[in-house]
Design a protein around this nucleic acid. Structure first.
Lengths: 211, 211
DNA sequence: CGTCAACTTTACACCGTGTAAATTCCCGAA
DNA sequence: TTCGGGAATTTACACGGTGTAAAGTTGACG
């Protein structure tokens, strides 16, 4: 489900898009405003802030999203579409060797990280108070893990996997290395440039996982 | 500083310990109750829960700690004393070679992680809403970083540091690897046993940092 | 002209934190 | 023995943010 109260009616679906092709509809403006405010990882963004930024009343926001968590989740999805995340991750699968594929996957994911950083932070902050947020985040993490597993499998089928590791262990490690937290610490707290982060992670993953 | 409002009076200090040597005083009982409730990483622990667990009224808690953040911070310090964290970390400095020292430091820190896990989570959850919590956590992280830097320096003075890394870079990496988040993901989400976590981190750090 | 949907305004309930004050209880010193 | 005074207790309330509820406004389209 989605928000707090046991919402009997499951909501009649987003919208049949009665909007021709120009000015973004209210829902989209709200999502845009939320992304705008959260970009950069600002904390303490309230529903009223988002409403104001979208040029709409606070109540109007609740007309489109039953709860804050739902808005954040929709914002993540919205951003994914805008940035064609799936396509970019998919492309990383084209690499020929297992090692190249690992590097490409890391690069693709790393490119994604700074973009969702803001919303991700907000979503994670609700992780243990909101069931919907938890589920959405877990889902996302599961997707990342899938990518990791695929990269590890490619490595293994090349015979290039560190023999001390099972595929599962290697996946766990890679999945852990690529977490938002690690990205945030290195690029944020340590002040690393994005390229340095990418290079370091590629190197680290290769050292840890490759034979 | 401590809590929310600009507390004019800076608090007259904990207490001159009028208690001889038997039943723990209320303050200690509150800290104990908080640690108990938070151990295991439970979320959503309220002041009233802690008060109840300590067998005291909610208001009594505020008699001892001006705000939730201060209670959590005191709880962390209390736990540190109980568990002799400083001593354990200090011992890891005794190792002769740089590599041994790195391994010992990782083991010592790893032993600490599961113990403060619960309070740490609660404290981190307030990180961006409470200034005192932020400062306390940053402080803690700075201490960890110091340990990392020392281990890296030991490695370097053995000439065993990966030549592709400056000491600073190596410290950043080690600091990142040893984060609570990574521990939580591996032992929690991935279900790794503590020993496996320690071994994997020692191995990973050696691969990443050693020549 | 009517009506339907989107949006606004106003108001309120709920929760958890933190403040405030009056009251009880007990212990130790004059 | 009485008189503090400290430590709790109880009760009450302010605040901020989320979410609900309902009545009123506006504009497009039949």
């Amino acid at each position: 489900m989605s928000s707090k109260k046991p919402n009997s009616a499951p909501k009649p679906a987003p919208k049949p898009a009665p909007n021709a092709g120009q000015a973004p509809d209210t829902r989209t403006r709200i999502l845009g405003a939320a992304l705008e405010l959260l970009s950069g990882g600002a904390a303490g963004v309230r529903m009223s802030d988002i409403a104001k930024a979208a040029g709409v009343s606070r109540q109007a926001v609740y007309l489109h999203f039953p709860a804050r968590a739902d808005l954040l989740i929709a914002a993540v999805r919205h951003l994914d579409e805008l940035r064609e995340v799936d396509r970019r991750l998919e492309e990383s699968r084209q690499a020929k060797s297992g090692r190249a594929r690992l590097a490409a996957f890391i690069a693709a994911w790393a490119g994604y990280l700074p973009e969702i950083h803001g919303v991700a932070r907000a979503l994670v902050a609700m992780y243990d108070t909101d069931e919907a947020a938890r589920a959405a985040w877990d889902d996302r993490m599961a997707a990342l893990r899938h990518g990791c597993a695929a990269a590890v499998a490619a490595l293994a089928s090349d015979g290039a996997l560190n023999p001390a590791l099972t595929e599962e262990d290697a996946t766990d490690l890679l999945w852990t290395l690529l977490s938002h937290h690690n990205w945030e610490r290195l690029t944020g707290d340590c002040g690393w440039a994005q390229e340095r982060y990418v290079a370091a992670m590629q190197d680290l993953a290769a050292r840890a996982l490759a034979a």
